[in-house]
Structure formats: structure tokens, C-alpha cells
Amino acid sequence: MKKGTLKQILLITDGCSNKGEDPSAVAALASQQGITVNVIGILEDDQSEDPTGLQEVEDIAMSGGGVSQIVFKQALSQTVQTVTKQAMTQTLQGVVNQELKQILGPKESLEELPPEQRGEVMEVVEDLGETCDLEVLVLVDTSASMHNKLPTVQESLIDLSVSMNARIGRNRFAIYSFPGKKKDIDKVFDWSPRLESISSVFPKLTSGGITPTGPALKEAMYQFGKKSLKRSFLRRDESNIEEAGY
């Protein structure tokens, strides 16, 4: 089986979209293109209950084939990783499930196997999760209400990179923020294997209550096909051949 690259969009937001197309629809489209959409909703520290607006978080992830979680600021670091890893396993499990169906017939899936055999299949899934390449585009909501959360977001993204780079497979990360100054999204950090070097702080926050989550997701989707990405992967390939020399 050829090991492909897993593509994910990680949306970090604290509110409801209010402009442009329905983010769930865009997420469904992304999912069709092989891009998983994960969503993390951040709560205010003093919020005791989930505001109704955050229901959208779950909806987007559901139609994007991804994972969603709603957390307080303090738990963000750990959540970012859990969500990313869970979504990887979920995607890979989907792939393995399809293979299983081809071998064992349309009715068979991982859940239909007895526990003993399931263990062996999960080992394969785990192997794939460890060795596959991963591209994560992080899309951060930088509307005014996110102001005091952005330092934590930045920290948790560095942490994500530490975790993912402990894997055997290769990683690429990019960070975009929305709403952008002129466009739907602004580039904060271009595709790179590591995030430890994020020195640029998130751009100045946009005041006003616009949260165009849908258009931002759509724009983010296009970033996966960009030339710069292919080129940088080629470069990485060359260097990897050297490394493989020992």
C-alpha cells in the first residue's frame, strides 16, 4: 500500500460564523477533496455553559469528516494534539476499512470483526499513523473576542509541532488567520516542517463582528494545492535521500 499524505485543516475559533457561505457545506466539500476538517472551539474562562453558537463547531467537523472539541483556554495544548491525532486515526481507519471491505465483502468493517482480529488491524492503523506524511493547515479566528486567547493558541501550536515531529513520518504546517485584511484569510506562517520558529505574532486583530468562517475555510482548502508546497516537498525529498544513506 502506498503511503499517502494526510491533509487536515484545523480551525480554531470561539464563535459562530456570520458571513458568507455555510461553513459546514465548505467542510463537506473539503472532505470530498480528501481534506479533513477539525474544529476546536475555545470557551471563555468564566463561561460555565456552552453558548449555542458553538454547536456549529461540531457541525463543521462532522461534515468535514473530522473531530471537534470544545475546551477552555488552559486545556488547549493537549486538545490540539488529541484532535489532530484522533482525526489521523479516524482517517486512516476509514482507509483501512475500505480495504477491508474490498477483501472481506461490503458488510465487513473494523467494528464487525471480533476483538482479536481487530487488534491486528489496529496495529496496521497505528503503523500508518506513525509513518504517514501529514499536512496541517491551521486556521485561526482572529476576530476581536479571540484577543486574549491568541498567545495560548500560539503556544499550543508550537507544542503540536513538537508532538508531531516525534513521529517517523514527515510533517508540514501552515498558519492562516481570518478574517484577513483584504482577502478572506491572511498568511501568518508558510508551509514548514516545524512551528518552533513562529516568531511572528498573530496580526493585529480585526475589530468588528465579522466572522466569515465559510469563505475562510474555502480559501484554506486551496492552499493545499499551491506550488510552493510541492516545491518544498521536493526539496525535502532530496535531503531525505541523503539522510537515508546510513
Binding site: E111, R118, M122, E123
Partner: peptide, 13 residues
């Protein structure tokens, strides 16, 4: 989370 349970079981084994 069936898959996570399976992974833990693998470890215990």
C-alpha cells in the same frame, strides 16, 4: 472510542 480501546488492549497483550 473502539479504536483506542483496541490499542490499549494491544499494549496489555
Amino acid at each position: 472510542k473502539g479504536s483506542s480501546v483496541t490499542m490499549e488492549v494491544n499494549v496489555l497483550k
